[in-house]
Amino acid sequence: MSDALYHDAILALAKDRRHAGRLDAPTHSHTSDNPLCGDRVTIDIERASDGTVRRIGHFVRGCVLCQAAAAALAASVEGRGPAAFAAAESALARVLAGQNDPENGVWAAFLPVARHTSRLDCVRLPLVAAKPVFEA
């Protein structure tokens, strides 16, 4: 049932404001929209010359799931190298396919979303916005 989506871990992620808001001087930035609902996510990062993400900021106009995914993304990549984003993408793909895997980490909280086709893009949007940033 829908209630399962709004469990404590998801709500806690959505309320995690540590990386909420734009960075003052990002090295890379990108915004993506979900045309179906009008939600919008902007991802800013400040990247070191060795590819490490020094800081990440997200600005989310979206639902609880979208906000939670943005927080999970920030937690997954800050202070880490470029491989961390690819790992986050893989983990989310597994989770949204309903695969419970020890490597899912923070993304495991999103497992209940796998049963709600109409909400998959809510969770994906922060990573869609982040992808050009990490591929730049």
Partner: peptide, 21 residues
């Protein structure tokens, strides 16, 4: 709150609504 979160929780209460633009 966000309309999709409202609609999702409403669905769990047996109420079909529409959220979005």
């Amino acid at each position: 709150t966000h309309p999709h979160d409202i609609c999702q929780i409403m669905d769990s209460a047996g109420v079909a609504l529409r959220g979005g633009h």
